[in-house]
């Protein structure tokens, strides 16, 4: 009998081919980020702090702010809604821990790891390139480090996080990712 060990299937990143043929632009570097655990958490008051304790990062209560610790990110998306991201992690153990810590409380927890992909744009002109399609004021006063929000990039909805003055993380639904990537490429072409 022929025995074969099957490799664990990994969902292909829709940006692989685009990223492989991307030209470097120092002022606005584009990176297609690898897989990440992503959990959508919504909950009433009682469930919020136990969920943060189980996740290891307190869920921010201030609008449009993110918290991070040890490679884990908790993003405020709405007054009862957070997106939890852990790059490179398996979602199942994180999911189980939060589910157990909030058992019996009014809340919802959904594993959305495969729903979206991450793009990082970094460099002195990162905000300039984002503003080709994003209508928000991305000056540091209006959009400080640590701020996060759903917004739009051209006609796609994205989640945008500012990790440093010149580093942004974009989380976008995977079918929209090539659209966003190619418009970012177009926006930075003049900088090459």
């Amino acid at each position: 009998m022929l025995e074969r060990s099957m490799p664990t299937p990994v969902a292909a990143n829709p940006l692989d081919a685009l990223a492989a043929s991307s030209r470097p632009v120092e002022a606005a570097r584009l990176t297609a980020l690898g897989p990440a655990a992503r959990l959508a958490f919504r909950g009433r008051e009682a469930a919020i702090s136990p969920a943060g304790d189980a996740f290891g990062v307190a869920l921010p209560r201030e609008a449009c702010r993110s918290h991070q610790a040890e490679g884990r990110f908790a993003l405020w998306l709405g007054p009862d809604e957070w997106l939890l991201i852990v790059p490179g992690a398996e979602p199942a153990p994180i999911f189980a821990a939060i589910e157990a810590a909030t058992a019996g409380m009014p809340r919802s927890l959904v594993d959305v790891s495969a729903r979206s992909v991450g793009i990082e744009i970094a460099g002195a002109k990162a905000a300039f390139v984002l503003n080709q399609g994003c209508p928000l004021d991305l000056s540091l006063d209006a959009f400080p480090v640590g701020m996060c929000t759903r917004t739009v990039f051209h006609k796609a909805e994205i989640v945008l996080v500012r990790l440093a003055p010149d580093i942004f993380h974009i989380d976008v639904w995977r079918s929209f990712a090539p659209y966003v990537w190619e418009l970012l490429e177009e926006g930075r072409r003049e900088l090459a």
Partner: peptide
């Protein structure tokens, strides 16, 4: 573009609403 003041998020562009 209109700017609308979301009671949660603050002033944001009309296209988000």
């Amino acid at each position: 573009m209109l700017i609308i003041d979301c009671p949660w998020c603050g002033k944001r562009p009309e296209i988000e609403f």
